[in-house]
Design a protein around this nucleic acid. Sequence first.
DNA 1: ATGAAAGCGCTAACAG
DNA 2: CTGTTAGCGCTTTCAT
Lengths: 327, 327
Amino acid sequence: MKRNIVSTTKLAEICGVSQGTVDRALNNRPGISPKTKERILRVAKEFGYRPNIHASSMSGGKSMLIGVVVFNPNDDYFGDLLNKLEEEFAKKGYSTIVMFTHKNQHREKECIDNLYHMAVDGIVLCPICHGEEYENYLLSLDIPIVTVGNKLEKLPYSGMDEVQATTDALCHVISNGYEKLVFVTTAMNLKNNSYALIERLRIFENITKQYSLETEIIEIDDIEGIGISDGQIDEISKMKSLTESDKKTAFVCSTDIYALRLLPLADKLGAGIIGFNDVRSINTLAIKLDSVAYNVTASAKAISDYLIDGNGEIPVIEHKIIKRGSI
Amino acid sequence: MKRNIVSTTKLAEICGVSQGTVDRALNNRPGISPKTKERILRVAKEFGYRPNIHASSMSGGKSMLIGVVVFNPNDDYFGDLLNKLEEEFAKKGYSTIVMFTHKNQHREKECIDNLYHMAVDGIVLCPICHGEEYENYLLSLDIPIVTVGNKLEKLPYSGMDEVQATTDALCHVISNGYEKLVFVTTAMNLKNNSYALIERLRIFENITKQYSLETEIIEIDDIEGIGISDGQIDEISKMKSLTESDKKTAFVCSTDIYALRLLPLADKLGAGIIGFNDVRSINTLAIKLDSVAYNVTASAKAISDYLIDGNGEIPVIEHKIIKRGSI
DNA sequence: ATGAAAGCGCTAACAG
DNA sequence: CTGTTAGCGCTTTCAT
């Protein structure tokens, strides 16, 4: 029951025309009469013709391949993003190649190099690597690239307005009467060009200063796929500044992964807590955690439009403070 | 700074040999002197030669592409599996193409068809479609395929021993004194050839009958990415048989997705609860839920060995009852 | 409007 | 041992 794969050459034979003419019909190229074009198209459909990406790619055409390079599919919002990206790309006939860097710089470069040699038509990248040289290298590849999660100076980025989002989040917290804010993040991410996290911290410091709020910054060690270890939580829970403070305290977690783990502690301390990304498991598990959500579907759509259709503008993705009562 | 991509032809020029000889050196083909081979290999490395998958694929060689077709990256254990599969494939120089079916039969066939036309070297498939005709079709593709999650009669499968795993899980439950067992699953999955779930239910019925235990089977509507809706939980929580039973009751959930959502209810009812798969978020969030874990890393390794290295045997993946005190 | 032909980088078969 | 050659299915250019 295996169907033979028909090529343009075979279609040409069947239709009694040259292969060049078939190509003209199939790819809307000029120089063909409507009549023959229609006939070829009909036969092509009848025989289930599908273009061969390898041949196309080899002769300078598109490979119909898009690469997605992210940390891993469990972390943060990558699962959701991947889900939506694949859907958008598939809609346009493109296939998705995934590569996971596990936050390893060497691996990241390897992924990019692989994709380059595969002649993908576009790349979605959550970079750890950074620096002028790296950016120039990426640019020199001459493949459209959109970054997510971490920003690079010269490359397009899809994400929310971190300044506004963090501001909104803090307004939400402050307007609920919290007087002491504890920012939770990782030293590792701050060292590794984690644009979003750095911005969130920067705005946190600006605004808390502006409101003369007491603050604390907790830098934890990020453990891939776990976020915060039990030991770290124990340490945090023993912090004098937390247990002995008479001020209404809230944890502002740079990502939901940390917030989800700290939620029980926050409950115990009677502290408020909020995270970023509104990861799916919050909803799946019906967890009462406030979070700064952003429209992943819209982001995926924007990325796809830019990468595939060459839309020049990547719109800022709208965000929303999801209130579930943890603040 | 863009490196030129060197081809075998260019290497041939550089080395002053024919392209055929370069090919022999690069691919360990016979008929070449150690001396020239070594020289060519050295030059190839020096110039950063990388084989062109499109050209290779077109001339009957490997495409170095593996397709992974699953429901979606958020559900169940697919995120974990995808993570490990990509790692295994990458180790061997293969790239991973992901496609998400969202449990849509038509989409599943489309994915397979796409991969077939891309000439992938192997496919990992979690099928919803089934039936003799479909299986024959898959077989006719002449591409190695391994199924996961759902089994098909004639195709290789990687997973745990469901009979033993379910037996072990129930032994764990029964040995802890539970007298009434409630099995939670979805009608949808039972209708859609969900091998694992069907087996789990079958064994559940066998064993509970054997021990003359009181049972109940709750069929919920599966909601992609959510599992169980609030409404359904409300309904379950109102069930007389649950609230008025004087017997020690436990929920046996066919997957962790349901167990995680029912955990609070189980707590409220003072019931025990156990799930299957030991999905990562249980650990990430340090949730106290017993679960039947299976070694995803080993599964990914076995799949990769079969698909890429042609290992004839796919070993049954070992399972383990993870006890966290919910039973 | 259509045909013919070159070439992308590789595999495989054949010639020396 | 090594060189040569014919494709794979497409894109592109040049002829007709």
